[in-house]
Design a protein around this nucleic acid. Structure first.
Lengths: 188, 188
DNA sequence: GTCTATAGCGTGATAGAC
DNA sequence: GTCTATCACGCTATAGAC
């Protein structure tokens, strides 16, 4: 793996573990096994390297969501699969957590890929709900956009509950609760 | 207001805005208009002062939740009121955001009040749901604990969605979506 | 393209005057 | 009880050798 690749991967890990404010270039360099010069040769500085790392993580997350939510199965099944997909719950969401980072929120450049990812996944869920509604799997009074926001919020908030208690149980409980509310009217 | 009071209040504000890792004693002292000595006279250091600040915020949050969720109205109305209560959405949850702070999660002492608050509010919602279930307002197959987790997760995750987009709209959409799923079977 | 050395500043904490 | 001075260390960035 090239040095710039190792820098990006190390940054991705550290941003996930410690956020942007909590991640220092020094820690990145140590993890990547590189010197100061390498980082400032390939990137303009910490924000530039972080942007490359965030973009890659964002792309991965969108791809995973698309694979499940625009994949095979009934609308309810796809949402269920997405909610129940394997997750490192206690690590939290590598993109969602950045919204609590003051320096990320203060920078339009760093916030952009975060916003795009959240919006994209929310729309994928919304479309799936609309599809299920047309098929009669979901009640006609449900709004796709709103349910999409509720589903994604449950996931993002589930991480908060789990990390507060130090156990994934609360995340799983929230997902089960939401699924019980979404249970289709017609069996599929 | 006493110096130690001003220190706690300044810390509460900064923890809300920037989290634990992003908050320096220097910034706290500047905001409180105090010198280094004052802080180290009243508190053992940054973690000790942060603990006092977190405890106070946690107590406030629990009190607000209790006032609404253990107050008057039908179970659905109380949950609706709690979900729709006035919030500074873009500032996020002063307690929930701490779960994304690596140093808070790494310290059992700092995490404890966060965990207690989240658990307490989740239980308040759970009890309210159980009450509504007994009254026939909610479907009998719903589980109070699970719905409690889903409701609190929707709030916590709603902050994530809102902060990502820079607008409270996504929070409101998620709340409306959840409320549409919770709509009581019997009119109240 | 990578390294080390250094800069200038901020951090969290301590010492000791008042 | 509050202040300023100081400490050792870490941060982000730059310079310049190799």
């Amino acid at each position: 793996m090239s040095t710039s690749e190792r820098l990006i991967e190390s940054t991705r890990e550290l941003l996930w573990e410690r956020g942007y404010v909590g991640t220092s270039p020094k820690a990145i360099l140590e993890r990547a096994g590189a010197g100061q010069g390498s980082m400032y040769h390939h990137f303009k500085g910490k924000p530039d390297l972080a942007l490359a790392a965030i973009r890659r993580t964002a792309d991965e997350l969108c791809a995973t969501a698309e694979r499940v939510l625009a994949g095979p199965g009934t609308p309810y099944e796809r949402i269920e699969t997405y909610l129940l997909r394997e997750r490192d719950v206690l690590r939290g969401c590598p993109i969602g957590r950045l919204t609590m980072d003051p320096d990320v929120i203060a920078s339009d450049e760093l916030r952009a890929p975060v916003d795009e990812t959240i919006t994209r996944i929310r729309q994928l869920i919304a479309k799936t709900v609309e599809e299920g509604r047309r098929q009669g799997q979901f009640a006609p009074e449900l709004d796709g956009e709103e349910i999409g926001a509720a589903v994604l919020a449950t996931i993002q908030g589930g991480y908060v509950l789990a990390r507060a208690s130090g156990s994934p149980a609360a995340f799983d409980a929230g997902v089960r609760g939401l699924l019980s509310l979404l249970t289709p009217r017609t069996s599929a």
